[in-house]
Amino acid sequence: MKSIMSIVAVFLFCTIQANAQKEIPNITVKKLNGTSVTMDEITSEKGVKIISFWATWCVPCINELDAINEVYEDWIDETDVELIAIATDDARTKKRIKPLINGKGWEYKILLDENQDLQRALNITVIPHVVVIKDGKIVWRHTGYQPGAENQLYDVVKKNAN
């Protein structure tokens, strides 16, 4: 028990010590029409982007993207931010993505990380997980969604947009 606790302590310590991951790994993901796109193509663009990891079966993820959708137009007008929703659905549920986003009327760019290669490379174990990038560099990350968290996210976007 003691040694487990010390292992945990050591890792937490080393985490705090270590610099946070700044780069988005150049993993190939798919567009909805099946064509490939590399993350470098996205991170080479200037400006602030929100990368949101979600899945069609994840209720808090949908709550978050629904909540942002309500105010997304205002966010774009004010900060020129772009939200890229990366679906981690695998073969079981990925066919649901297209009708779901259209049914919901989401205006996001949707990409598919079907075998979770990008999710794994970013060491994301729990979704929803949001990464904010500015000029391709990670400036903020957050795990989980609770109603109202989109305000906190927008504060981060505004701070980095100027």
Binding site: K95, R96, K98, P99, L100, I101, N102, G103, G105
Partner: peptide, 15 residues
Amino acid sequence: VNFGYSQKGFGIDAT
């Protein structure tokens, strides 16, 4: 076999 149809505000998918 899978097919689907979707437009803004509506989507249907069959597998």
